[in-house]
């Protein structure tokens, strides 16, 4: 059994929080460039140019791409042959968030009590941590700073099986149309179909980690992704909602088997600042 000290995890999380907030993944930058080439609206084009310039400046000057440095969503894939030593794994992750957000001049956006006093925890903890146990002796850490504006536009539809494919289409379109300009389009649309209520949302959120433009390996799901992409971009919302032909950079769908009575559908929207950063220890 391989031993991994929690200090290494804390250091990695602190570093990843900063890198994720300063620098967009290459596939997202490429998608923004492609959007600029295809956008028909003049104000939409100008908006995309500014988004690209903003991302370049943030990376060059090591500044936060967006002042909303997110709730820190952390995906851990822990190899079953790793022994985490020296302290609690989740304590180590939260300590990394605390150090990274302070050292990186990142905004702390978490409040302790969600429905009344809402006092800021002042260090962006606690992180939202998802853990998978996987084969092997490595630990993979993925940091996703998720902004509140796009997260607020998430939708869960507990559809019945008779609604079928058209029901999925109608509901996703409804979610995107109602979100309008709020989630900072152009957006990436994360969709989870199947499982239970919480499983569907987990699928939707995690699908956002897929590279923009890559499709689900199941041809039927990929086909649905392509159709939704066309339909969403025909809504006319455009960059920042000013009107235009690019509302979405991509549509990512993941599915899971479902109960005979259920067809859960979750939609999790990601703003154009689709930040995430990974490391394997």
């Amino acid at each position: 059994m391989r031993e991994l000290n929690v200090k290494e995890i804390t250091e990695a999380v602190a570093r990843l929080c900063q890198e994720a907030n300063y620098s967009l993944p290459e596939d997202v930058m490429a998608a923004l460039q492609q959007a600029l080439a295809s956008e028909q609206s003049p104000i939409g084009k100008q908006t995309l140019e500014q988004l690209i310039e903003n991302a370049r400046m943030a990376k060059a000057e090591q500044l936060a791409i967006c002042q909303d440095c997110g709730a820190t969503v952390v995906y851990l894939e822990v190899g079953q042959d790793v022994h985490i030593a020296g302290g609690g794994l989740y304590d180590a992750v939260n300590e990394g968030v605390r150090l990274g957000y302070e050292a990186g001049y990142l905004r702390k956006s978490m409040v302790k009590q969600p429905f009344s006093s809402r006092v800021n925890t002042k260090d962006n903890t606690p992180a939202i941590i998802h853990t998978d146990i996987v084969p092997g002796d490595k630990v993979k850490i993925t940091i996703v700073p998720k902004g509140g504006g796009s997260e607020n536009m998430s939708r869960l539809f507990m559809l019945t099986p008779s609604k079928g494919r058209q029901g999925i289409i109608d509901s996703v379109i409804k979610a995107v149309e109602e979100a309008g300009s709020n989630p900072c389009p152009p957006i990436i649309v994360g969709v989870g179909i199947g499982g239970t209520a919480e499983k569907a949302m987990e699928l939707a959120k995690k699908s956002l980690l897929r590279k923009v433009g890559d499709h689900n390996s199941d041809p039927e799901v990929a086909d649905l992704e392509k159709e939704l992409f066309i339909r969403i971009n025909a809504l006319g919302i455009g960059p920042q909602g000013y009107g235009g032909t690019v509302t979405a950079l991509g549509v990512n769908i993941d599915t899971f088997p479902a109960h005979i009575a259920s067809m859960p559908l979750a939609v999790n929207l990601q703003c154009h600042a689709a930040r995430h950063k990974e490391a394997v220890l």
Binding site: A64, C66, G147, C184
Partner: peptide, 10 residues
């Protein structure tokens, strides 16, 4: 007025 969301550095 709207400012561009997600262009905070700029």
């Amino acid at each position: 007025f709207a400012a561009i969301g997600g262009a905070g550095a700029l």
